[in-house]
Design a binder for these strands. Structure first.
Length: 779
DNA sequence: GAGTTTGAAACT
DNA sequence: CAGTTTCAAACTC
């Protein structure tokens, strides 16, 4: 170390005067090769930053490394005035060739290049999949470290003649660059070192993840700048790249059966951030496959901070997100998506809504390019859908898989056809969990995407995708499986800036098919839309949250028909139906394909998906139908059909929770919002600890990951043991509710189960028993 | 397609 | 917080 700093200083001081003094000095230092040594010295000067030197050590690297270093310099410069000042000239000189920004870009490119080889090496030495994953993960970190982290300090060590030592010293960040080393034949040693380092990092990462897992809050928050960076990068990337990710991930998982790897990666992602996941995944792929410059560049950019900051700020401004909050991410994404869309639309055709519409529509219609779009959205959708219920429907899975698999063509959704293999399922779960996490981000993207995806699916399902009349469209959509994702409104007075508007409520811009009047929910009026959203959210943070929340908790509200009501899904607020008997779409619960819960204030509930406790008692199935019949047999029939479907599904052991298309669709749409709107609270609460759930039901759905795990937990445990307890008992929410008027209702159900309090207590116990991921169950 | 019903959202 | 109004979807004809 000592030597290096001296060298650096010297080099820096000499740099300007390189010619004579430097040479002399160098010559003095390295008797062997005065000339070559010069190179490094120059590099060093700019590199004076600790980290860089290592790279410079190898003469080859020369230009490339320099560029890299330059980047670092730029970063480091801010952090380290000394270097900047001293080196400034040098740097500037070096940079003279290119602007700083240009350097960044170049550096990024270089990085990528470097990475690729490094990856290959690492993989070769290590396991390919793991290596790749690691690598991807590592990269960001390394970058981060490079930037300003103390780690850079070791760089001086690098200055030392030994390339190997240097590489090691540089460690994380530079290791990948081993190309040089490899070239020199040092590769072996370097690789070993690099691998070790990588492994260490990996371990660290894992640990971090674990920690993160423990901390729900952390989960939400970017673990490391890397995450944020990755995320940002992903963000920055166009949708297309993002779309890539999903398919890649999906494809990989099932194909390779790299369950562990995939899971690990997924989990990690999940834990961190959905966004991150995508980003990282994307990185991986890109690195592996195409050398995606984007990500790296994005990372570098993030390093620079300019882009990311801008984005964030912009996003924040738009939604007034809180920087620290976990939601942030999701919000950002949403925002981004939103903005992205807006930007696109604006770019495409400022005035033309059509362009935007095109986007939405295109998805279904145009498999090719659009597919990419779809993909992103699809991802979001999938995620959302998944988020809704990890288990849920095959449909969801299919969609997710299909979408995931396919940017190409939703028809790919046909993937649904493919029976999910165990591996797929596992992947699925992981994905779902991930998706759930993403829900946040997907929020916007998800919504839009979801719409797209839904549209696509609908399209697939129904050729008729014609959307001439909203009603027809709706019906078609419904028929299609009710991919409500393609929402179309018919607003006349709300200007599509109120929750009355489905599109707005779903966080989606209105599109052509909409027959709304005086619509402001268009990219053109983005500002207005955002402002309005803010307003609404200020009033009700959960306004855009998904109305139907899927929760692993079967328990919470359902006191009623255990069989009918999908425990996992509940309407956030519950319905207030009085005349529809919760048998028509007027009922949000019914519409969402979920049973009524304690939260509901409905009267004469006959919800086919599950009655409210009180109502359930009141009405047995037989009588219900009878009662329902009078009012509307037709409607009932329809509803029953759905209900039947659900029932059948329920009957099937697999889908404990009915996953009607409705559910899927709705939740999808809603989810995105929820993610957006979701108050950070929910997230934090969820993530932080199981204990905090009170208010969090909403959040739950968002928290995908825990659900998956927990859900499984519950399912396994719960199904056997839980059901009774859970059924009877009230989730924390229910408990809360008990205090509320609803509690009255609750009491009657007791008849079924016995002592409610006991249930509650039992339930609590159960929850407690589930230590790690309490959040899931929260309700 | 027009009109009615319905319940959420918004308002007071 | 409760009551009322507004709104647009859902539904019927």
């Amino acid at each position: 170390m000592m030597d290096t700093p001296e060298k650096t200083q010297i080099s820096s001081s000499l740099s300007k005067f390189e010619d004579s003094p430097v040479f002399n000095y160098i010559n003095s230092l390295s008797p062997i090769k005065p000339v070559k040594s010069i190179h490094p010295t120059q590099t060093f000067n700019p590199l004076s930053f600790a980290s860089l030197p290592s790279i410079f050590t190898s003469p080859h690297v020369g230009s490339h490394k320099e560029s890299r270093f330059l980047k670092r310099h730029s970063y480091t410069d801010s952090s380290k005035p000394e270097l900047s000042s001293g080196e400034g000239h040098k740097v500037s000189t070096n940079q003279e060739a290119g602007m700083v920004a240009g350097q960044l870009c170049d550096s990024t490119a270089e990085l990528q290049e470097n990475f690729n080889p490094g990856v290959s090496l690492g993989e070769a030495s290590l396991e390919l999949p793991t290596g790749t994953s690691r690598f991807a993960i590592e990269l960001p970190r390394t970058l981060n470290y490079d930037c300003g982290s103390p780690n850079s300090d070791p760089a001086p060590c690098v200055i030392e003649t030994n390339c190997v030592s240097e590489s090691t010293c540089t460690s994380l960040s530079i290791v990948p660059f081993d190309q040089e080393a490899s070239e020199k034949g040092l590769s072996d040693g370097v690789e070993a070192v690099g691998i070790c380092q990588i492994e260490q990092e990996k371990q660290n990462i894992e640990c971090n993840w674990e920690n993160l897992i423990s901390d729900g809050a952390d989960l939400l928050i970017f673990n490391s700048p890397n995450d944020s960076v990755a995320f940002r990068g992903a963000f920055q990337k166009s949708l297309d790249p993002v779309t890539r990710f999903c398919p890649t991930l999906i494809s990989r998982f099932p194909q390779n059966d790299i369950h562990e790897v995939s899971q690990t990666t997924v989990h990690s992602y999940e834990r961190k951030d959905p966004c991150l996941q995508t980003g990282e995944a994307g990185e991986l792929e890109e690195i592996n496959h195409a050398h995606g410059n984007f990500e790296v560049t994005s990372v570098t950019n993030c390093m620079s901070g300019s882009l990311t900051d801008n984005v964030e700020t912009g996003m924040c401004d738009l939604y007034s997100f809180k920087p620290g909050s976990n939601l942030h991410r999701g919000l950002r994404r949403r925002c981004l998506d939103f903005e992205m869309l807006a930007a696109r639309r604006n770019n495409l055709d400022d005035g033309s809504n059509t362009s935007s519409y095109v986007d939405n529509q295109l998805v279904p219609t145009k498999p090719g390019n659009d597919s990419s779009r779809c993909i992103l959205p699809g991802i979001g959708l999938h995620l959302n859908a998944l988020a809704i219920t990890s288990r849920d429907n095959k449909n969801i899975k299919h969609e997710t898989l299909s979408s995931g698999t396919q940017k190409i063509s939703f028809p790919g959704s046909t993937t649904s056809i493919l029976p999910p293999t165990a591996g797929q399922e596992a992947v699925h779960e992981s994905l779902t969990s991930a998706s759930t996490e993403r829900e946040i981000d997907p929020a916007e993207n998800g919504v839009q995407l979801a719409e797209d995806a839904s549209q696509a699916s609908a399209y697939l399902a129904n050729e008729e995708f014609n959307q001439n009349s909203p009603k027809k469209k709706r019906r078609r959509l419904e028929q299609a499986g009710e991919n409500e994702a393609c929402k179309r409104c018919n607003c006349k007075k709300s200007k599509c800036l109120k929750l009355y508007c489905e599109c707005f409520a779903a966080g989606v811009y209105c599109i052509e098919p909409c027959s709304c009047q005086d619509c402001f929910n268009k990219p053109i009026h983005e500002d207005t839309v955002l402002a309005t959203r803010k307003q609404i959210e200020s009033r009700n943070p959960l306004a855009f949250a998904p109305k139907v929340i899927r929760t692993s908790d079967p328990i919470p509200e359902v006191g009623d028909d255990s069989s009918k009501t999908p425990a996992s899904a509940r309407h956030k607020r519950g319905c207030n139906c009085k005349k529809s008997s919760c048998l028509k779409k007027y009922c949000e619960c019914y519409q969402g394909g979920v049973g009524c819960s304690i939260n509901c204030r409905c009267e004469g509930c006959k919800n086919a998906f599950g009655r409210k406790e009180g109502s359930a008692i009141e009405e047995t199935e037989g009588p219900e139908e009878e009662e329902t019949d009078p009012s509307d047999k037709n409607g009932v029939d329809k509803s029953l059909e759905k209900a039947d479907i659900l029932n059948t599904e329920k009957q099937t052991p697999v889908s404990a929770l009915p996953t009607t298309p409705l559910q899927l669709c709705r939740p999808l749409v809603q989810l995105p919002f929820s993610s957006k709107s979701k108050p950070p609270q929910s997230f934090t609460a969820i993530g932080s600890s199981s204990t905090l759930y009170n208010g969090q039901r909403y959040g739950k759905p968002n928290i995908i990951r825990p659900q998956n795990i927990i859900e499984k937990h519950f399912q396994t445990v719960a199904e056997d043991e839980m059901p009774e307890i859970l059924r009877g008992n009230s989730s924390p929410v229910t408990a809360i509710k008990t205090s509320s008027p609803n509690s009255k209702r609750i009491s009657p159900p007791q008849c079924e189960l016995g002592s409610t309090p006991g249930r509650r207590s039992g339930r609590k116990l159960i929850l407690q028993s589930i230590p790690s991921f309490p959040s899931l169950t929260q309700h």
